[in-house]
Each structure stands twice: as C-alpha cells, then as structure tokens.
Amino acid sequence: MRRSRAGTVTINAVGVVLICVFAFPVYWMVSTAFKPTIDILGYEPNLWPSALTMEHFHTAVTRPLFFDYVRNSLLVATSTVLLSAAVALLAALAVARMQWRGRRGFLTLVLIVQTAPFEALMIPMFIIYRDLGLLDRLPALVLTYFIFTLPFTVWTLRSFVAAIPADLEEAAMVDGCSRVGAYVRVVLPLLWPGLIATGIFAFITAWNEFLFALVIMQTEDRQTLPLWLSSFRTAFGTDWGGTMAASTLFTLPVLVFFLAVQHKLVSGLGAGAVKG
C-alpha cells in the first residue's frame, strides 16, 4: 500500500508516543530497582536515578531457593504451553475443518468454560487434589494451568485454522504431499502467529499464577517464582526496591521468549501467508 510521506511520519510519531506511554511505568519499575532505598521515596521524585545500586538485585537472587523457583517455574510454564498447544490444535482442526454432530455444542462449551471463576475453584480443587494425593506435585500445577488456558487456545487456533483457505491444503495434496505433509508444510507455517499469541498467553498465565501455586505446592523447594516475588511483601509493608528488582527479573524470561519467536509474528502483515 502506498502512503504519503507525511502520513508515514505521523504514524511513526504516534508509534513513538505510544511506546513512551506504555513504557513509562515499566521504566519506573526498572529504574527503581536500581535506586538506593533512600532515593526510592522522595519528596522531589527523580526521573533519572542519581545513584545506581545492584543491592536490590543482589537481595532478590540470593533469597534461599531462588534457583529452585526458577527451575520449577520454567518447567511448569513450558509444559503448560506445550500441552495446551497440542491439545488445542487437535481440537481446532476438528472444529474448523470438519462438520460433525455436536460441533456447536462443543464450541458453546468452550465459551462457557471460559467464564469459570478459577479463583473460586481454589477450595474445591484443593480438596480434590488433596483426596487424590496430588498436592505438592508440579504436574498438578501444570494440569491446572492447562485447564485455565485451554479454552482461549482452542478458540483462537480455530480462527487461525479457519482463516487458511481449504483449497491450499488440497492444492498441496495434489502436488503429491500426504495429508500430514500438507498440514506440516502448508498449514503449520500459517499457524505460527496464532501459536505464538496463544503460547505467550499460556506462558504468562502459568508464569504469573500465585494462589494455586501457594496452596497446591506445599514444600518450599517445589514452589514457583510468584511466591518468591511475594516474599518482598510482608504484613508491615512492601519492600519496594526488592519488589521492583524481582519483578524486573521476573519479566525478563517472557521478553526473551518473545524476542526468540518474534520474527514469526512481527515479520509484517501478510508476510506469513501463501508462500507455499
């Protein structure tokens, strides 16, 4: 699409403003993490930290069991992403590509399930896990988050599958691909943006969840990072420097994950489509 130069400049300027607006609180979080405690509060707030310290980061990573928390969180979050993508993709294919009795009912169910109040299911789920002897096991946490993220993932992947013209697969099959080959070579590349969007969603959901992790995982070295993050909040108040440093570290893996896969998402409108 051709645009006027002025239009392009305006659009990019709006982009820059938006970045600033969205990034400012993030900047505040990160810069606070580097400020000495006495500079954190100030009657004259400093936009730029006048002195830098690694003290809060040091406190944060030297908390006991920090690396156990990191390992558990990574394990739980990636398992959730994979499990939820695999199960949802199968269902999405069935829903988007096939006509069958009960399809509408299934879709309605997916939507209704989305309204389930997970926080309110904490007590019943705890009782069930307790009776099944699943407490204190990481797979229990993965299953819980998998259920949290499944409906959105099914629904979203369905719309991505549906957006791929069916004749594309057929064309590929005519070219001699098997049905599986057709899916892998033609459909899957087109699904990347959807898989990434839902993957980030599942990752963040699992990565950030606090209450179930607190209640289901009882042994300290089996807990996840949100519990570590909460250790900077006490009955007496919040350790701001510690919380901000911990939150900065906490957010990093998501950013890394995103940067690793972004080329599949950010490569530009239409770039992913119909190259097969």
């Binding site: 970045i19 609180p25 993030v26 980030i200 939150s247 957010t251 950013l255």
Partner: peptide
C-alpha cells in the same frame, strides 16, 4: 509503523502484559 518501531512497540507490549498484576498495581 516501520519495522524497528514495530518490534520495539511489541516488545514493550509483551513486557507490560507480563508484569505481575500486583507489581503493576504497586507501581
């Protein structure tokens, strides 16, 4: 927007999304 801005903006968005709600609230 141009590619560098697009990447920056989406990275910022992802970070904002990933920040724990409680931290966002405190900030």
């Amino acid at each position: 927007v141009g590619r560098p801005l697009r990447l920056t903006l989406s990275a910022v968005l992802v970070v904002v999304w990933a920040i724990p709600q409680i931290t966002a609230t405190v900030v």
